[in-house]
Design a protein around this nucleic acid. Structure first.
Lengths: 131, 131
DNA sequence: CAGCATCCCTTGGGATACTG
DNA sequence: CAGTATCCCAAGGGATGCTG
């Protein structure tokens, strides 16, 4: 049995990966705000920082920056900077990012077909709900 | 233009849903620990509380309880209680939960085929990483 | 066994203000 | 425009102890 490394404190290093092989992808793709960002870039093509900001409505520049950096680092988004005045920067979904499209589409289908059931279940549920 | 409801404080009510139709499903299925739990139940059939706890290794009973309640409420997991001494409770993935299996499988495939690229991108990345 | 109750603490993120 | 820099807070979780 291999030794389990426990580094409490570092982000997203809970070890579910032990029990669940897709945990890394989940962390990668389904972190807060990453899905909306990828989706928006996928639908609209290259967008500038402000354009993204506007479409995501409630996101703050700080968080948008942070998520974009992360997505860029992970190769899901490409950042292109133009030497202009005023400065222009465009973000575009990468080929790698695009390869997630079918999965997003499937999630969309699943949603259409099953979210109603989830709503049902929620209404029917009477038990306790801690936290 | 429809009025955007803003209730800061309530969980997962950031509005990315505006820009991203699959946000609700993402919140439902890819919250912390839910994937490992569903995956484990899917692989192993009905499991008792302790069995789940053991397989998930680092999860605490508090969190496990909380996630299970949530999954039960949303109809993704079924809880069966047996009137025995000592008490026995079994958790099983529901039909609705099972319907997610293909998507999980696709995520697994994507992972196998592309996580290496992500690693590459991370190593190649030199820019700043706020947060 | 299968939790529930408490306490506590890290941290993701929101709000706001400011620069190159 | 495209971010940075600070301040700040709620909340998700971890640890521990107790109960039906």
């Amino acid at each position: 049995m291999t030794e389990t490394i426990n580094r409490p404190g570092s982000p997203s290093d809970y070890d579910p990966v032990q029990a669940c092989p897709i945990s890394p992808v989940v962390d990668l793709v389904f972190s807060r705000w990453t899905t909306p960002i990828l989706w928006t870039l996928h639908q609209n093509g290259p967008l500038r920082f402000v354009e993204l900001e506007r479409r995501l409505a409630t996101i703050t520049p700080k968080v948008l920056t942070s998520r974009l950096r992360q997505l860029e680092r992970d190769g899901l988004v490409e950042r292109r900077q133009f030497a202009e005045v005023p400065p222009r920067v465009e973000y575009e979904i990468s080929e790698l990012g695009r390869s997630l499209a079918p999965i997003f589409a499937d999630l969309g289908s699943w949603s259409q077909q099953n979210m109603a059931r989830v709503e049902e279940a929620r209404k029917a549920y009477t038990g306790p709900l801690p936290r």
